[in-house]
Amino acid sequence: MRKDVRIGVPTERATRKGRAFGLRDVLVTLGIALLIVGVVFAFNRSKGLKEGSFVSANVLAGGLAAGPAPTLGKAAPDFEVPLLNGETFRLNEHRGHVVWINFWATWCPPCRAEMPDIEQVWRSEQGSDLVIVAVDYAETTAKVQAFVDKLGLTFPIALDRDGQVGTQYRLAGFPSHFFVDRQGILREVRVGLLSEATMRATLQKLRSY
């Protein structure tokens, strides 16, 4: 038998003269892999790997000088702010109460929109262990007073004039809600407007701790 073959177009088979990736190569590869793991591990031990260069907006706003960031399940950072009625509010004085800290500003539409609902909850909770403090972020007393009068709000409004508390609490947006239980532990953080139902549900949950 004689054979005579002509392939019109060179296929990859024509080039497939080299050895394929054999078992030995696999072993060598794994060896090198281990070596690389070792090198990176050593480098990691000595220098530490970069955890990404991302700087979150709240860290940017706060920097490191603002003290520890609020963390769920840990004690809420203490602060002291003047209230609109001239008194002073200090968080740590309210152990034994559930505390709802609301950060807002008059130029923030959802903050304004939820105010009547907060008022509603506040009125229905008269005489309970609920403490509300709505901290206005860096605005003048006159401006805040005018707004509060218009809406007839009766819950405590605080003035964070230089934005220090907001920075300390690493605000990412308005409105922000921080819920602190009777032991002073931060239990819930909510960014964005809350419905009245959500407010009540969150408070109920807060009392269960």
Binding site: S56, N58, P110, A172, G173, R190, V191, G192, L193, T198
Partner: peptide, 11 residues
Amino acid sequence: ESFVDEYWPEG
């Protein structure tokens, strides 16, 4: 009935 916009703690 209601509308809610929620945000991550990061913003």
